[in-house]
């Protein structure tokens, strides 16, 4: 059983990128989920850009950390469905320019429960014409089966 400290968005663990809005065959999309910040996916111009990360199972997400360059604004939506549809807004946040280095962004998780199968990441603005994404890391647990009947407790 993987622990909460393990990155769930790894191709080697069954995660995949279901959709992206731009592609450069020299920098394939799987570079974002190979666990390595040296390899990357780069946009080829224009905004907005979108990426859908599909996790191998439902995960109750505790943390999302993205390594990138030149992103100016992230949006994130999540879906619990088997297919990537019916997304709900998770967060929208501005990002400072990393200038000469990486941007390491931890997305805000405003709700207490962020259970998801798919994460849709949107880049609506860049600090330059192109942005690169080097690593998407998603941490969390497999959700406990929802309690049925009166056993459900309020915190």
């Amino acid at each position: 059983m993987p622990s909460a400290h393990e990155n769930r968005a790894l191709a080697s663990a069954g995660a995949k990128i279901s959709m992206v809005t731009s592609s450069d065959t020299s920098h394939p999309v799987d570079n974002m989920i190979d666990g390595n910040t040296k390899s990357f996916w780069m946009t080829t111009g224009l905004f907005p850009q979108e990426i859908i990360v599909s996790l191998p199972t439902l995960i109750s997400i505790t943390k999302i950390i993205i390594t990138s360059t030149k992103v100016a604004h992230w949006t994130a939506d999540i879906s619990m469905n088997e297919k990537p549809n019916h997304f709900e807004r998770l967060t929208a946040q501005d990002v400072d320019d990393g200038d000469q280095g990486f941007q390491l962004v931890t997305l805000n998780l405003p709700k207490s429960d962020n259970t998801a199968r798919h994460i849709r990441l949107g880049i609506t603005k860049g600090h330059g014409p192109f942005v690169s994404i080097h690593k998407i890391a998603v941490y969390g647990n497999e959700p406990t089966v929802p309690a049925t009947g009166p056993a459900a407790t309020e915190e």
Partner: peptide, 19 residues
């Protein structure tokens, strides 16, 4: 931009292996 991103990522200015 690609060159710059490679520098930030610490990849030598050669193309990455995949390309």
């Amino acid at each position: 931009n690609l060159k710059n991103v490679r520098r930030i990522a610490g990849v030598p200015d050669e193309q990455p292996a995949t390309s």
